[in-house]
Amino acid sequence: EPYFRAVEKRAVHQALAEHDGVLALGGGAILDPDTRALLAGRPVVYLSMDVEEATRRTGLNVARPLLAVNPRKQWRELMDARRHLYEEVARAVVATDVRTPEEVAQAVLDVLELKEA
C-alpha cells in the first residue's frame, strides 16, 4: 500500500496541475495531507454512500486488498477513518445511494451552482 499511495499522490498532484476537467479520486487519495492542501478551495464534492450501496456496486467480493477480510466491517472502518477528511475538503456532499450516474452528475452540478450563487 505505501508504494501505491506514493504513485497515487504523484498522479493526483500532476492531474490537479495539468487537467481542467473533473477528476475522480480514489478513496484513499485524501489520506495525504499535501493532497488535501491542494484540494482546499477547489470545487470538491464528496460522493457519499452507505455500506449497502457499496455492496450493491462492488459486491465487496472483488480483489480489493483493504477489503479482503470481512469486507463490510472493513468498509465501515475505512469510512469512519476517512469521512472527516472527505468532509474537510469538500465544498458539498452528494449522496449517491440508489441514484444513476446521470442523477449523481446532475446533483453535483446543482449543488455546485447553489454554492457559487
Rank of each mutant, 00 (worst) to 15 (best):
Y86M: 06
P71R: 04
E77Y: 14
E87R: 09
L23V: 08
E1M: 13
P33M: 04
T35D: 00
A37M: 09
R42T: 15
H19G: 13
R64E: 06
D50Y: 00
M49W: 00
A17M: 09
L85T: 00
A37F: 06
Q74M: 07
H84L: 02
V94K: 07
H13Q: 13
A6G: 10
R5G: 03
A24V: 15
R5Y: 01
V98D: 15
A37K: 10
N61V: 07
H13K: 12
V12N: 06
L67E: 11
D34F: 05
A54R: 02
L39G: 14
A63Q: 07
D97W: 15
P71C: 06
Q106V: 15
E113I: 00
T96W: 11
P43Y: 02
L47M: 10
H19C: 14
E8M: 09
T96F: 14
E8S: 08
A107M: 00
L25A: 00
E103I: 12
L47F: 02
D110K: 03
A92V: 11
P33A: 05
L78A: 06
Y3G: 01
H84S: 08
T96C: 14
P71N: 09
A6F: 08
L39H: 06
K115G: 13
V7K: 05
L112H: 10
T35N: 00
E77F: 11
V69P: 05
T55G: 14
A11W: 02
A92C: 12
A92P: 11
V89K: 06
Q106I: 02
L47T: 00
A37E: 07
N70D: 13
R36Q: 02
H13V: 15
R36L: 07
L60Q: 08
R82C: 04
E87V: 09
A90K: 01
E77C: 13
E102P: 03
V108W: 01
L16E: 08
D97M: 11
V45Y: 05
A92L: 11
T96H: 14
V98T: 15
V51E: 10
T58P: 14
D110F: 01
V62K: 03
H19Y: 06
L67S: 10
G28A: 07
V12I: 15
V51P: 04
A107S: 14
D20I: 03
D20N: 06
R91H: 09
L31I: 14
L60W: 02
H84M: 00
V7R: 11
T96I: 10
E116K: 08
R5K: 09
K115Y: 12
W75N: 03
E113T: 04
T55S: 09
E77T: 12
